[in-house]
Amino acid sequence: MNIFRFLADMSHVLSILLLLQKIRSSNSVAGISFKTQALYALVFVTRYLDVFIYFVSIYNTAMKILFLGTSFYTLHVMYKKRDSGTIAANTIDTFRVEFLLIGSLALALIFPSERIYSVTNILWTFSLWLESVAILPQLFMLQRTGQAESLTVHYIFALGLYRGFYVLNWIYRYYFDNWFSLTSFVTGIIQTALYSDFFWVYYQKVLKGKKFELP
């Protein structure tokens, strides 16, 4: 564990808390992509299968259970409140996730991490590719609506920050731990890059106290 990884995990936990707080405080799931949340649940299921295979640390196991639990809890809450959005979710959450699923599966089958062709390893690789693009339905939705509640915006920012910190962690581990995972690094760069436009708007608008509106 190093400081970057710890900050990454904390940003990830913060993003989940912000999302749940947004739903609670506005009593609405308007502006939140159900598809993105469903993809994250699938990411955690396919990645954390190893929780049954080996033990890393109490921290590791607890966080895996936390991420799995909160992702399904979020889906449950969103489903319950599905009619509370001012705009019906199905008219705006229209990103075609089939392409993300098929693309991620194809990449995992062609380039499994460490070239180990086991079911668990292919699913692990799939989860990394899928996570790298899982935010797209959410960003697509944001672009269509053009504006968002501040908690939603903070949620997306914390989520983007999380993988950005992981990239720093991987650079650190390459030099100081003699450890490197090409799959993690490449997907992490893609994931962080997808947020780059969003980060810029966040900096320009939110940090300067203006309402979040896309130009």
């Binding site: 990830h12 190893d50 180990i116 390893n121």
Partner: peptide
């Protein structure tokens, strides 16, 4: 099935 390398990150 070949062994899975231990993955310690989340």
């Amino acid at each position: 099935e070949p062994p899975l390398p231990k993955k310690d990150e989340l």
